[in-house]
Design a protein around this nucleic acid. Structure first.
Lengths: 346, 346
DNA sequence: TTGTAGGCGTTATCAT
DNA sequence: ATGATAACGCCTACAA
């Protein structure tokens, strides 16, 4: 049953076994037309019997196709986003016989362009997946366009028409999130923005504002703080918000990590959540359900988005006429225990 | 300055420019001997001027070397371990001109062997990095040995002599961890084991037992529970431990995720940590410092271990006579606020 | 529908 | 120390 395979079986072996020429084998392997069914069967049989696998290097050398896709990503501390991106991209690659090469980037970085160029040329990837926020870094997108390397961007701020791009309705989701707070009677609702370089930050903020507006609540800039999607910035922002003469009774953090910072700050002040302060996050990362109290948050279908993006990218590389999805993916509000009706002040 | 590179510069171009044969260029590129210094300089100059990059596919086709390394890993929920493994491995690869291919595995899985074989042969990796617990899965290690693919295992239970393997002293670290509890007066110390398939589980448990022994504390099997390195199993184990007629005053969880489960369970019961119960984790994952209270835990140099393992692997592939490190890497106890002296019972 | 010849860019062999 | 030439395994013409 088990055999080490010392001898390489080539296209010639298959051709001989099947009694055809190598070109015919090649046609079968590449699913080309103009092969009689009977012939195809014969070849397929020989391939199976011989356990033939086309040599990738020879294929690439001759056919100019590496069957390699690159994932250029920001190598952040918070990894759960990347985990989903990776899994989705890997799935798409595997389903299509492609392999994935990684290119982690430290941001901000003066010579990203050089690194990406090195990666794109040296690693000879045919296409590149660009998860947020990299779809919005001109140094990267411009370079890739110049290099003529097809790109699929996940959740870019302003989608390029020549790129594939997928996104989700996180604006509406933030709107819904703010609404659960409003419906619970909260009126002074703080907001912690995400990193300004991420397209999602502005979108989520807009969702928050729309929710206020829709319910006739006056927007107050004093209740808004700039965060950077990390724990510390969330904690700092919460501290400032809670120091206000009229502190908010609820805080919307633009992601879970910052919400964790808010929770931490509240604990340090002896504030009870959700008794004294309601808190919501965004992303439904693993930490959201492990914190106390478990966070009300929003789940994005990141893995599906990544798989779709990578899948479309590869299909495009294969000459198919692909198109970015018309509709954004749907986010889902996850209600847990970090929110409660506002305490009556009387 | 910036130019799209439509024309491929090949070894012939370099040879012509330098006034030598392609073989000489090849020698220079591959750092072979038997090239006069003056000639070498000329070639190097031509390479630089022309921005010559050897074609990887041609190299592989001709030379049998793919310059590809594989990372076969367990695709678990908890990703922070993999994040460090990935970063370390990537660093080692980049420093040596190798690329990394990923092979996520769902465990347990009946046909891992088939998947790994597919990966190893189809992806034509020269060597494979096997982070725990995969270094201890016979279906995988046996296959790789049969395929003659060099392996570097990170923290395997029983290191194979023909493999490269790196580990850390997490046994001693657990010993130290238990000691901080003992020194705080704790005598009834619960222990939650890790996943039985992970080599680290037994090692850490042994460290705990040695600490008890050293301080003359009787070991009680009643205070030990089997966990699986995940939040839920930690929570369940804590629940059982706290239901005991004589519950422990402290709990050692074999990793942070389980410790988070313990914290959660304590909160649900209205127990204060560390007031009523001290808790320690292991790994110093990101969640450890975001939980309330922040966890006392142990930091492992996983990234360094991974970089060392991958680096040695590649050096070995390049024909160097490498050897696994003699000494295990050092772990570091991180004291935070989840531990306190035991409350006096009088 | 099928086959033949040539080339992709390297490395390896064997001269010189 | 250096160079001509033949693989390496496949794909793209172009025939047949």
């Amino acid at each position: 049953m088990a055999e080490a395979g010392p001898k390489k079986v080539t296209i010639f072996d298959v051709a001989e076994r099947a009694g055809v020429s190598i070109k015919t084998v090649s046609r079968v392997v590449n699913n080309e037309s103009n092969v009689r069914d009977a012939t195809r069967e014969k070849v397929l049989g020989a391939i199976r019997e011989l356990h033939y696998k086309p040599n990738a290097a020879a294929r690439e050398l001759s056919g100019k196709r590496s069957r390699l896709v690159g994932l250029v990503y920001e190598n952040a501390q918070e990894f759960s986003y990347l985990k989903d991106v990776l899994n989705g991209t890997l799935d798409a690659c595997e389903a299509r016989g492609y392999s994935l090469l990684l290119c982690p980037l430290a941001l901000p970085n003066p010579d990203i362009a050089a690194r990406v160029r090195e990666f794109a040329t040296q690693a000879r990837v045919e296409g590149i997946v660009l998860p947020a926020p990299l779809g919005d870094v001109p140094a990267v997108t411009a370079l890739l366009q110049q290099l003529r390397i097809p790109v699929a961007a996940i959740a870019p701020k302003d989608p390029q028409p020549e790129e594939i791009n997928v996104s989700c309705n996180d604006g509406e989701a933030t709107h819904s999130l703010a609404e659960v707070l409003i419906e619970q009677g909260h009126r002074a609702i703080g907001f912690i923005k995400g990193h300004p370089d991420h397209g999602a930050s502005a979108v989520r903020f807009a969702g928050y504002r729309r929710a206020l507006e829709r319910h006739g609540i006056a927007f107050s800039a004093a209740l808004v703080r700039q965060g950077y999607f990390d724990f510390d910035s969330g904690k700092t922002a919460a501290s400032e918000l809670l120091d206000l003469a009229e502190p908010p009774s609820a805080i919307v953090a633009s992601n879970d990590d910052m919400a964790a910072g808010v929770l931490f700050e509240a604990r340090e002040r002896g504030l009870s959540v959700p008794g004294d302060l309601s808190v919501v996050g965004f992303d439904d990362t693993q930490i959201a359900s492990r914190l106390w109290p478990p966070l009300t948050t929003v789940r994005q279908p990141i893995m599906q988005m990544a798989e779709t993006a990578a899948g479309l990218l590869i299909d495009k590389l294969n000459g198919e006429a692909v198109q970015s999805p018309d509709e954004p993916f749907e986010c889902e509000v996850v209600i847990r225990n970090s929110t409660a009706p506002v305490a009556s002040t009387t």
